[in-house]
């Protein structure tokens, strides 16, 4: 069995990888699609929305919600893998 310290290190490294990927998507949908490349995307249309405008006022928000729930899922799985999940009943009052 690995020592607590190496376990913690590996856990933290994996956490940072998740953060990096999720924040990249966070940046891409809001600052990328909604601001920097808005004009380019506006040439496409979904229904009555120009695409860049849609990302800025609707799409980015939907993606933000999904991102947090993906993070919750990934981290719960990671906690379980390293045994850091609080399932110990004695801690609940």
């Amino acid at each position: 069995m690995k020592s607590q310290k190496t376990k913690a290190k590996a856990y933290w490294r994996q956490n940072l990888i998740y953060l990096f990927v999720l924040l990249f998507i966070w940046f891409a949908v809001s600052y990328g699609a909604g601001i920097l490349f808005k004009e380019e995307l506006d040439q496409f249309q979904i229904g009555g929305f120009k695409l860049g405008f849609w990302f800025a006022q609707q799409g980015s928000i939907y993606v933000f919600v999904i991102l947090i729930f993906v993070y919750v899922y990934l981290m719960n799985r990671l906690d379980a893998k390293y045994g850091f999940n609080d399932t110990n009943k004695s801690e609940t009052p």
Binding site: W12, F84, D86
Partner: peptide
């Protein structure tokens, strides 16, 4: 280091 590990927050 301790706050980076989620377990034991109840205490």
């Amino acid at each position: 280091e301790d706050i980076r590990i989620p377990s034991g927050a109840g205490k």
